[in-house]
């Protein structure tokens, strides 16, 4: 794993140059130029099907750009493809992707699997991140259900555990696709508060798909609206 030297806060971290994404024959958006600073909280909003999740997938390197380019900057300011940041991006998937048969705590600890060679984890999952996993679960109000099998937890509990997993990685950046969509208003504010506090404390860049305008106004530094009704398909 590449060593991470202390990067300057406020320095460019993510750069999109004329990025365009297409789903089948339909362009979701084209010509998106954007620079996200290190430690910035960028909210991505817009109607369903506009391409918010596709953008997050592209930032994570899970979806190739249809046109244009995107790159992450390392501590020295050199451009890196998203694939180079694998293991350093805290991903929170819209469909959660928790292991249903494992407890929430184990699921959160699994975020750090990639830090260990595979032959060292054959006998069991590493527990070195357990203290941090427990702290995150506690902060998200899941301390009492930490040992409960994921499949037996409610949708909201699973969603908060997915957020904890993304943060447990101690990533450089967090890419969260609708991380609070299954939570009640208070729960959503609490979860986003944890995300913002972690981001501030550790200088994490956050790109977070959100639907509620109050959440965007309270937690985000900037908002990117992706909407096919807009002339360019997006607006900052």
């Amino acid at each position: 794993m590449a060593a991470i030297t202390a990067p300057a806060p406020g320095a460019p971290h993510l750069s999109l140059r004329g990025l365009g994404l297409r789903r089948g024959e339909r362009w979701l958006f084209r010509g998106l130029d954007l620079e996200v600073r290190r430690g910035e909280f960028l909210a991505v909003t817009g109607p369903s099907g506009a391409g918010k999740s596709s953008l997050v997938a592209a930032l994570a390197g899970l979806l190739p750009a249809s046109e244009g380019g995107l790159s992450w900057c390392d501590a020295a300011g050199a451009a890196q493809p998203p694939a180079a940041l694998r293991g350093r991006l805290g991903l929170v998937f819209q469909d959660l992707r928790l292991v249903p048969t494992l407890p929430l705590l184990d699921n959160v600890c699994l975020a750090r699997l990639g830090r260990h060679p595979w032959w060292r984890t054959l006998a069991g999952a590493p527990r070195e991140g357990e203290a941090r996993a427990r702290a995150l679960l506690g902060a998200l109000g899941l301390a009492e259900v930490a040992e409960r099998t994921a499949a037996l937890c409610s949708g909201g509990e699973q969603q908060r555990a997915a957020l904890a997993r993304g943060l447990c990685l101690e990533p450089e950046a967090v890419l969260a696709d609708e991380p609070v969509s299954a939570l009640d208003p208070d729960g959503a504010r609490r979860a986003l508060g944890v995300l913002r506090d972690e981001a501030r404390a550790r200088g994490l860049t956050v790109v977070c798909v959100l639907h509620d305008r109050p959440h965007v106004e309270e937690f985000a530094d900037r908002a990117l609206v992706i909407d096919p009704a807009l002339p360019a398909g997006f607006a900052l």
Binding site: A60, L62, R86, G87, R88, L89, G90, L91, F93, R97, L110, A111, L113, G114, R115, P117, W118, R165, L169
Partner: peptide, 9 residues
Amino acid sequence: AGLRALGAH
């Protein structure tokens, strides 16, 4: 696939 994306082998 999610674990792979988080960096797992």
